Simulated scan of single mutants.
Amino acid sequence: MAEDMKKEIAEAARVLLIEKGVKKLTVKDIVEECHITRQTFYYYFENIPELFRWILERKTEELMKEEHGGNDEEADLRYFFLMAINARGGLKKVMASNYKDELEALLKRHICKMFEQIIEDKNLYQDCSRFQLKWIVRYHCSALLGILEDWTDEDTKNLDRIVHEIYLLMMGKVSP
């Protein structure tokens, strides 16, 4: 039941930001959209950034549960790019809201955590210190966000090649 109400609140925020183009999202807007009280909203979420964090975590969980390559890291990376490309329109609208700074920081932290998990799961960069790993993760995260921010239709046409080159870089390899 609690999960259902959280999903309903999240859907109301999505509708307001993406479909209705609200620039200044408020708790009042959300509770009116999903016909609940402010008290109900605050029972489930401390604030709107906490709601966004919850949404991001759920979407990542869904992404990881789906069949999209298994042990094929390059296929997983391609899948991630496809998901990001498909979410770009909605993400741009969300980033135009009054929560832009919080959302950018949250997204960056979340992608960094994903890279940390991949590095740990795949035992990558075994010869690096913790300090070096921290910078490698930040580098990959910033590079990926930069690439996605400036993504073009031409990039979409070259997706397979881009994914392959990024995969090789992430694995510490150079293409022939």
Rank of each mutant, 00 (worst) to 15 (best):
A96W: 09
H35V: 08
V137G: 03
K20Q: 11
I36H: 05
N47F: 11
W135F: 11
I111S: 07
L168V: 10
L91W: 06
E74Q: 15
D155N: 08
V137H: 04
R130I: 09
F115N: 04
D160Y: 11
K100E: 06
T152V: 01
Q126C: 06
F81G: 01
M114N: 03
F115V: 03
G90S: 14
D4F: 15
L145T: 03
D155G: 06
R58C: 06
C128E: 06
R53K: 14
W135R: 09
E102F: 00
A143P: 11
L144C: 07
Y99R: 11
V22E: 01
G89F: 14
I85K: 07
I48M: 02
R14G: 03
K28G: 11
F115G: 05
I9F: 08
K134L: 11
L17A: 00
D153W: 09
G21Q: 07
N98H: 06
A143N: 15
L77H: 05
V31P: 02
I136Y: 05
D150L: 11
R14S: 01
N71S: 03
L82N: 13
L124H: 13
K24I: 13
L103K: 04
T37Q: 02
D155M: 01
E149Y: 15
F115Y: 06
I118A: 15
G90E: 04
H164Y: 08
M64D: 04
K24D: 07
F115S: 03
Q126L: 13
V163Q: 02
L25P: 01
K24H: 12
A75C: 08
G70M: 06
W54C: 00
A105M: 06
E3H: 07
I36R: 00
D29E: 08
L82C: 08
E11R: 01
E50I: 05
N86P: 11
G90T: 00
D127S: 09
E67F: 01
K65T: 04
R161V: 07
A10I: 02
E57M: 10
H140Q: 15
C128M: 14
Q39G: 14
E46Y: 08
G21A: 02
D76Y: 14
A143I: 13
V137D: 10
E66W: 09
K23W: 10
S97H: 12
T152C: 05
D127I: 06
L124P: 00
R88N: 15
T156D: 15
E74T: 15
I85D: 12
P176M: 08
R78M: 07
G172C: 08
